[in-house]
């Protein structure tokens, strides 16, 4: 009974800390309103010309080649869905490390690390903020795209898609922790982000079907959480043929989540401890 109460109050403390970190990030972000608005609109400005370019190349939004490869022909919906997941991947690779770097720059990282919450709680608040930010961005993009094109999806596919996305976000949290640890030790931690980002970007079948990748890359892609996100989302929403069942996808994603989260937490903890030994926590 007593132990239960302690757990409950601890849970409440940590949940409150996650939420407070999220709120604080929003408030900081919204102090620069113009930058914020630009950040929301920029991605659309990049995406739209590509969609139009694709339509021009194919001669319409329906591609027979795509139909042959994956069982669905609508390139607009295909690419838009892929693009949504690029956003998630980018977020995992950059957002958390960037937030930590910002704290170092403000000088607030030590104040935060002196507080009685484990590091993962704090970083979870950061990723909650970036997920919400990402969702807002997706909403804006979809509004813009809908103004030009119609998107044809199967509404029944939304539920399994959200399930897959939820699990994928757990794995991305692990990747985010892993990436963020580099910002603690390298002044140029972003170089690591850049390298990993390029690799993962190629491996993730965003604008193309998995089938166009060489065989070994197809294998490697199966270790990247966003692959399952994209493929199952497109499967349920627009009928892309996939080589695994929903259960397979969920099972593998669960496994990947476990691996990435364990790995991310471990690397972060080791590096964070190292910075407290070296006295470089507050350096930027």
């Amino acid at each position: 009974m007593n132990r239960l109460r302690i757990w409950w109050s601890k849970l409440r403390h940590y949940a409150g800390a996650v939420w407070a970190e999220n709120i604080k990030e929003w408030k900081l972000e919204l102090t620069y309103k113009a930058d914020f608005a630009r950040g929301l609109i920029d991605p659309v400005v990049y995406l739209l010309p590509y969609l139009l370019y694709g339509v021009a190349l194919v001669g319409g939004r329906s591609s027979e080649n795509l139909q042959r490869l994956v069982g669905t022909s609508d390139i607009i919906t295909f690419i838009t869905l892929g693009y949504v997941f690029i956003g998630f991947l980018n977020m995992a690779l950059w957002a958390m490390g960037f937030s930590l770097r910002k704290e170092q720059f403000y000088g607030t990282l030590e104040s935060v690390f002196a507080a009685p919450v484990p590091r993962w709680v704090f970083t979870m608040g950061m990723s909650l903020h970036s997920i919400l930010h990402q969702l807002l961005m997706i909403a804006v993009q979809i509004v813009f795209i809908l103004a030009v094109f119609s998107i044809r999806i199967n509404p029944l596919g939304l539920l399994p898609t959200l399930l897959v996305i939820a699990l994928m976000l757990v794995a991305l949290y692990g990747i985010g922790m892993f990436m963020a640890s580099f910002t603690l030790i390298f002044k140029q931690g972003w170089l690591v982000s850049e390298a990993l980002s390029s690799i993962l970007m190629i491996l993730t079948p965003i604008a193309y079907p998995l089938a166009v990748l060489p065989a070994f890359m197809q294998q490697a892609a199966l270790f990247v959480p966003t692959t399952y996100g994209i493929l199952t989302a497109r499967h349920f929403l627009m009928g892309e043929k996939i080589s695994f069942t929903l259960n397979d996808a969920l099972l593998r994603l669960a496994l990947l989540s476990l691996l990435w989260v364990a790995f991310g937490l471990l690397v972060f903890a080791l590096i964070e401890r190292q910075t407290r030994r070296a006295g470089t926590l507050s350096h930027y």
Partner: peptide, 17 residues
């Protein structure tokens, strides 16, 4: 510095439970 005293205190209060 970009936040008010109250917002700063709210944030840290949550970290301290």
């Amino acid at each position: 510095w970009k936040l008010s005293a109250r917002d700063n205190l709210r944030f840290f209060a949550a970290l301290y439970g």
